[in-house]
Nucleic acid binder design. Structure first.
Length: 207
DNA sequence: TGAATGATCACG
DNA sequence: GTGATCATTCAT
């Protein structure tokens, strides 16, 4: 699922602040078998979300500063989630710039903490269904390849019609690379971080 | 390289 | 209740 989510469109917002981007970097987290996972020690008040419905958001507060967005991916009672680490902004960019206080498009949603800030995601999104486009945070099923047709992409959402175009340069970035996960002490040997090779919107070091 | 920052959880 | 830990970011 971490690989599957690469190229999908993450959208958030309401009538005033509507924005979206292409997911370009993810990390997979398992349960009992994964010492880096919040579900490693079983169900706790925080980790219970990971044991719940797939397709829900798992948002938690990290390092006293940042909210991190995960998508629950496994069946009920099976812990597992994918951390959304970076996205390429495609619309609502001015909103993201205001939230991030920078106009460097490569930095707007680079890194999991920056991504949630750009998209306006906080703890109130925890447990929300991200497969329902009626909600204010959701992942569009249309993937990267669907967007790579030779015309603009149109999305008729709840709030407004959005048209955007994927640059030719970015269309070429379809090769997925696996690496070790970032910022963890245990479980480093597992190659559970995935991203589009060569993308300037990806955080951390490229392989 | 390290400070800022606060929720979480194992333990007693 | 306490303290160690933490799926980070930014400036130095």
């Amino acid at each position: 699922m971490a690989k599957e989510l690469l190229g999908k469109i993450l959208i958030s917002g309401n009538e005033e602040a509507f924005c979206g981007g292409i997911i370009v970097e993810t990390e997979a987290y398992y349960g009992r078998s994964d010492p880096a996972s919040h579900a490693y020690n079983g169900i706790t008040p925080r980790s219970k979300i990971m044991f719940g419905n797939p397709g829900t958001a798992y948002v938690y507060f990290c390092y006293g500063n940042h909210h991190l967005l995960n998508l629950v991916t496994e069946a009920i009672d099976v812990p597992g989630a994918v951390l959304i680490r970076a996205a390429r902004p495609v619309f609502g960019i001015e909103i993201m710039e205001a939230r991030r206080k920078t106009t460097n498009i490569y930095k707007l949603a680079k890194g999991p903490g920056n991504l949630t800030k750009a998209f306006g995601v906080d703890g109130t999104f925890n447990g929300k269904d991200i497969t329902d486009i009626q909600n204010s945070l959701f992942v569009l099923k249309a993937g990267f390849l669907n967007l790579c047709v030779n015309k603009d992409y149109t999305f008729n959402g709840k709030f407004k019609k959005v048209v955007f175009k994927i640059s030719d340069e970015e269309k070429l970035l379809k090769e997925i690379v696996a690496s070790s996960r970032i910022g963890i002490k245990q479980g480093k040997e597992e190659l559970l971080r995935f991203y589009f090779k060569g993308s300037k919107f990806v955080s951390g070091k490229h392989v």
